[in-house]
Amino acid sequence: MDKTTDMPTVIDDAVTFEAVYDRYFDPVFRFVYYRTGNREVAKDLTADIFLKVYKRFSAYDPKKGSFEVWLYTIAGNRVKDYYRKTNRFQWLSLSAARDVAEDDPTTEEQMENKEEIAYLRCAVKKLKPRDQLLISYKFGAELSNKTIAELMDTNPNHVGVMIHRLLNQLRKEMEAYYE
């Protein structure tokens, strides 16, 4: 069992689709929402993803990789398909992706927050597509470095280094905004 998720690390006959759905729906939704920036699109795509997982649930083979990698590969491919069909791409800020509500900020604070988010969104758009994907896995889906490493065909230490460098790069961009 994975102590952080209360889910077996290997999906077997004892694990039901309902348990997987309950455990993974929110992180998959956040990942898709982060990638699309649109709540309604994210809802639709997440539903499509879990429909595909449901249809292929019995075909999952733990010998080929972890369940999370299998699930997020399906999710990533569905998002790619969406963009191929719509031929557009948006990114949502890190703070907006977490959908954190604050206590009624003033109008001025709201405007400042919107400007900061817009600036951060532009900074993220300047990153290479692989770096944008890395940020969406880490902060959108809140995946572990190990899972991200499997998805991106690298090692967990390298993922940590890449995230550290990207955050420093974004921090410098934001410092320039505040000056």
Results as ranks from 00 to 15, higher is better:
L166I: 14
L133D: 12
R84P: 04
A149T: 12
D6N: 04
P129M: 06
E173G: 10
R30G: 00
P156M: 14
L71M: 07
L127Q: 11
R88G: 06
T46W: 14
K114M: 14
Y21T: 02
K125G: 06
P156L: 11
T5K: 09
W70E: 09
A101E: 15
K125D: 01
I49Q: 02
R121P: 08
E116Q: 13
L134W: 06
L92I: 07
Y82Q: 14
Y54Q: 01
Q169V: 08
L167M: 14
A14S: 01
Y119A: 14
E18L: 00
Q169D: 15
Y178K: 09
Q90V: 04
R84F: 15
D48I: 02
N113A: 07
Y137P: 06
D131G: 13
L45K: 03
P8T: 06
W70N: 02
D61H: 05
H158N: 15
N77I: 10
V41F: 10
E116H: 15
R30Y: 12
E179F: 13
Y137M: 07
L120G: 11
L143T: 00
I49Y: 04
A97R: 00
N155W: 15
D99H: 11
S58M: 10
V159A: 09
V124Y: 05
F31C: 00
D12W: 02
L134G: 07
R88L: 10
V32P: 11
G76K: 06
F139Y: 15
V100S: 02
D12V: 06
N155L: 11
V28M: 07
R121A: 08
Y83M: 09
K85I: 01
F57K: 03
D103V: 08
Y137W: 08
L151C: 11
D81H: 12
N155E: 10
T4Q: 14
F29R: 00
R23H: 08
Y54W: 06
T16W: 03
Q90L: 03
S136L: 00
Q169G: 05
N77R: 13
T5Y: 05
T9A: 11
R171G: 15
T107R: 01
I74Y: 11
F139T: 00
D99E: 15
K114N: 12
